[in-house]
């Protein structure tokens, strides 16, 4: 059993990738769409893992960056006649540049102040999309752009491969000295600086990477949906992404993938949820934070889990960080 765990730890991402690749063969059509959205969210949330999980910069404007990626793709194709692939690349580049603008406030601001700035940023993008009707279609949205792949299954395979590559890269980054520099920035900026970490540069990197992934996720969203409207990018939407990154453990790429897919799937399994999705998400997030971060409650909760024989899950939860190898 221990051996199996070790195997899973080492090849977990590959196993997960293979599972995702064969999933369309066994799933029904609507389940497949949910799975697609789950994978697309996971790509976005991977960026939040770097930004919030590693670097501790609470961003609540990521929906705005997602919107930037999706709209940039659609508009480059529709208004400027780009080919889909060129449009996709440019959309990702544009989103990265827009996201970089956020790194500059982050030089001076942290915690709630940065969070407020990012909310403002996300809302400004949404309001601009809503009001620049001649370009963005305003509240009516945009549609009718061509897609990267004619076959929907191919989009999915592309997504899964991209996600696994991104996850591997993110894990590598997390263990490297750059990852450490980011984590040090989160816990103690001054100590990090004094140890020779260029904190500004680390922040730029974190914002650029997360914006790039949000942009990619946005492009894929445009490809999945075929129709974009500003309603999908409200700041309240950001809370579902927060839920995904928090439930994923804030430290592991596998966690992000699993929690993104599960959270996306939740309203489909529990049908009654679909109209009040965000209500349940935020409640779960509230309860999870409270249980997980207050030791007394946590012990009590794990005790209940054990009583009902879910011992393994309880033991696994005992060490949320997991025992990671001490390589770089």
């Amino acid at each position: 059993m221990a051996k199996l765990q070790q195997v899973f730890k080492r090849y977990g991402l590959l196993i997960l990738g293979i599972l995702l690749l064969v999933a369309p063969l066994v799933s029904a059509q609507y389940q497949f769409y949910v799975l697609e959205r789950g994978v697309q969210n996971a790509i976005h949330v991977m960026g939040l893992l770097i930004l919030i999980g590693y670097s501790g910069m609470l961003s609540l404007g990521s929906a705005g960056l997602l919107a930037t990626g999706a709209y940039a793709y659609a508009l480059l194709l529709l208004k400027l006649g780009f080919s889909p692939w060129l449009g996709a690349i440019f959309a990702v580049v544009i989103t990265t540049l827009v996201g970089l603008c956020l790194a500059f406030p982050a030089f001076r601001l942290s915690g709630p102040f940065l969070a407020v700035t990012t909310i403002g940023f996300g809302e400004i993008i949404r309001i601009l999309i809503l009001n620049l009707e001649p370009i963005t279609g305003g509240a009516y949205g945009v549609s009718g752009y061509s897609k990267l792949f004619a076959n929907e299954l191919h989009v999915y395979f592309f997504m899964v491969v991209a996600l696994i590559c991104i996850a591997i890269g993110t894990e590598r980054l997390g263990r490297s000295r750059i990852g450490l520099a980011l984590k040090a920035t989160k816990e103690d900026e001054i100590a990090a600086e004094v140890m020779g970490v260029n904190v500004k540069r680390a922040k730029v990197v974190a914002f650029a990477l997360s914006a790039m992934l949000a942009g990619l996720s946005g492009v894929i969203l445009a490809n999945l949906a075929g129709y974009l409207s500003p309603d999908s990018f409200t700041s309240a939407e950001s809370s579902s992404y927060l839920l995904m990154v928090v439930m994923g453990g804030m430290n592991s790429a596998i966690g992000v993938i699993v929690s993104s897919i599960v959270v996306t799937w939740l309203p489909e399994v529990l049908r009654f949820l679909s109209s009040s999705r965000l209500l349940v998400y935020s409640l779960v997030l509230l309860v999870y934070l409270r249980i997980n971060h207050v030791p007394a409650t946590r012990e009590r909760f794990l005790g209940i889990l054990r009583k009902f024989g879910i011992r393994r899950a309880a033991d696994a939860a005992e060490d949320p960080c997991g025992e990671r190898g001490a390589g770089m």
Binding site: L180, N198, C321
Partner: peptide
Amino acid sequence: ILGGQTVFENALLGKGYGNGGSGVLQTV
């Protein structure tokens, strides 16, 4: 020090970031 990180990782932090060496792309 970074309480959540291992002794090794804490020491590795002394390698800093931004002073040459591998960048993000090479790491990834």
